[in-house]
Design a protein around this nucleic acid. Structure first.
Lengths: 125, 125
DNA sequence: AATATACAACGAATAAATTAGTTATGCAAC
DNA sequence: GTTGCATAACTAATTTATTCGTTGTATATT
C-alpha cells in the first residue's frame, strides 16, 4: 500500500472520522486556516485514483467514503516502520518504547493483561 | 522534528548503518540501480541543512555522520503516528497489533517479561 | 609544470505534491 | 426561461523533492 502524503493524510483523517462526507463537510472539519474548497476536492479525487476512497453520486454531488480503513492503513504503515527501524521485530519496537518510558506503568500493565489473554487464546488452538 | 522524505530516509538508513561515511561510501551501500554520485551528494547536503547530519572536513573531502540517531528519529516518528492513529495511547496501538496477530506468541512472552522488569524498576523509585 | 583524478559546490532539469483559479453543468428561485 | 448558486471537473500556478550534468579546485601522478 502506498503511503499517504501529508495533505492526503489530513483528508483521510477527516473521512475516517466522518465515515462519509461531501467535500463541503470535509472542509468544515479542517482547522483554520481552512484550505480552499477546490483544494480538498482535488485531494479527494487523487485519493480516489489511488484507491483510498470511493464515492456515491447523488446527481452531480458526490459523497465520498473511505475504502481503506484507518486500521488497515495504520497496520500497513506500522509494518513498514517496524521493518525499517526495528528489523521487522515488534518485540524490539515495543521493548524500546517501554525502556524509553514512552509507555506508562499503567499502560504496560494493561498491555500485559491483554497479551496474556491473547497468548492463552492462541495456544488453545 | 521534521519528517524525512523517501530519498532522505534511504540515505539516513545507510548513514545509521555505517555510523559515518563519505558520499562515495554511502553510494556503495545503495542497491542497484544506484543513483548518481551527485544525487547522494545533494541529498546529504540537504540533510545537513535540516540538521540530520553534520560533517568533518578532511581538506576538501567531507565525511558525513548522523546527528539525529535512528532511535531519536524513530521515537519522534512513532510518537506522531501513535498520536494520529491511536489517540496517543501506546496501549491502544500495542493491543491492536497483538489482536491482529502481528505479534507472535513468542514475541508477546518476551515483551511481557521486559515489561514486568520495567514496571518493577519504575515502582521501586 | 602539465595532466589526470576525485570530489564538493552549484545549478539546471524533471517529477511529484500542493494549492487554488476557471469553467461547465445542473438545480432552484423568481 | 433567465438569473444566481453550488459543486464537480479541469487546468494552471506554485512549491517541494529528486536527479544529475557541469564546473572549479585540490591533490596525486608523471
Amino acid at each position: 500500500m502506498r503511503d499517504l502524503t501529508r495533505a492526503e493524510e489530513e483528508v483521510m483523517q477527516v473521512l475516517w472520522k466522518l465515515k462519509k462526507g461531501f467535500v463541503k463537510e470535509i472542509l468544515e472539519h479542517f482547522d483554520e486556516p481552512k484550505p480552499a474548497y477546490n483544494t480538498v476536492s482535488t485531494i479527494v479525487r487523487i485519493l480516489q485514483d489511488k484507491g483510498f476512497v470511493d464515492h456515491k453520486a447523488y446527481g452531480r454531488t458526490h459523497e465520498y467514503f473511505p475504502v481503506v480503513s484507518k486500521s488497515e492503513y495504520s497496520k500497513s504503515h506500522l509494518s513498514t516502520f517496524v521493518n525499517d527501524y526495528f528489523s521487522n521485530s515488534f518485540e524490539k519496537m515495543v521493548s524500546f518504547f517501554a525502556k524509553e518510558k514512552s509507555i506508562s506503568v499503567k499502560e504496560m500493565e494493561e498491555i500485559m493483561k491483554i497479551m496474556e489473554g491473547e497468548v492463552k487464546k492462541q495456544k488453545n488452538k
